[in-house]
Every structure is written in C-alpha cells, then in structure tokens.
Amino acid sequence: MSLTSVKMSEDVWLTCFTHSFSSETEEIMGLLLGDVQHSKNGSVTALIWGALPQPRSDRRKDRVETNPEQLTAASVLAEISFL
C-alpha cells in the first residue's frame, strides 16, 4: 500500500512549521496522528489530524532521541483520541 495523497489541517501544519523553526539548526522529531482512508478507485489518503512535537532528550549532534515517558504520554493521547 502506498499513499496517493496526504491531507492535514492548517493547525497541524503550523505546529510542524513552528517546531521546525524553534530548533532550526538541529534535527527534530514528532508524532503525527491520523487515519488512512481507502477509496473505491484504489487511492489511499492519509488524514492527519494531530501533531505532537517531541523535545530532544539527548543534545549530541548525532542523536535524535526522546524520553520514553513522552512517547508513552503521546501514545495514551492517541488512544484517547481514537475513542
């Protein structure tokens, strides 16, 4: 399965944009929350409805890591959002 298109809200785009400029000299990471929509014509669209920027827990230039606690909290938020 490959994506045909991606749709995201303006709020999600602005969250990603702001996160990227807040640490423009470093790599960043975050989680996108959404759904996959399959259409009858075979196209597949990712519908992104949430963004969770993750702060770096390791400041070395060759590492982009986050705390397990932050990932767990993001996972819980995603589960709650699906309900």
Rank of each mutant, 00 (worst) to 15 (best):
A78T: 04
S43Y: 01
H19D: 15
L3T: 07
Q37W: 10
L31W: 03
A74S: 03
H19Y: 05
S2D: 10
L77M: 14
V44C: 00
T18A: 15
S20F: 08
D58I: 04
R60T: 11
Q70K: 13
A73F: 02
E65W: 03
A46W: 01
L77T: 09
S75D: 06
G34M: 00
F17H: 11
S75R: 00
R56L: 11
P53I: 00
L71F: 03
E24D: 09
P53E: 00
A74H: 01
I80A: 15
I48W: 00
C16Q: 04
G50M: 02
V64I: 11
T15E: 04
F21V: 12
S57R: 01
H38E: 13
R63V: 11
E65G: 04
N67D: 11
F17D: 12
V6K: 02
L31I: 14
T45K: 09
T18H: 11
A46G: 07
A46N: 05
T15G: 08
E65N: 05
E10T: 15
Q37V: 15
V64R: 02
W13Q: 14
D35H: 09
A78F: 01
D62T: 09
G30M: 00
H38S: 14
S9T: 15
E79R: 03
L31V: 13
V12S: 01
T45N: 10
D62H: 15
L14D: 11
E79Y: 06
T66W: 06
L31C: 14
V36A: 02
D62Q: 11
I80N: 08
L3A: 10
S5D: 14
R59V: 03
P68C: 15
C16S: 07
I48G: 04
L47R: 07
G30L: 02
L31D: 01
M8I: 06
V64A: 05
T45R: 07
S22N: 00
F21T: 07
Q37R: 12
V12G: 04
S39E: 10
L33H: 07
F17Y: 11
T15F: 02
T66N: 04
G30D: 02
S43Q: 14
S2I: 12
G30R: 03
M29W: 01
P55H: 12
V6C: 07
R63G: 01
S22F: 02
L14F: 08
E65Y: 08
N67A: 15
D62L: 08
R63H: 12
L83M: 10
M29I: 13
I48S: 06
L14Q: 14
L14C: 06
E24T: 11
G42T: 06
L3I: 06
D11E: 13
S2E: 12
F82H: 07
E27S: 14
V6G: 09
P55I: 06
K40D: 15
I48E: 00
T18V: 14
G42N: 10
T4L: 08
D62K: 05
T15C: 12
K7A: 15
D62M: 09
E26Q: 11
G50I: 06
T25D: 14
S20M: 08
L77D: 10
E24R: 07
L3Q: 03
A73H: 05
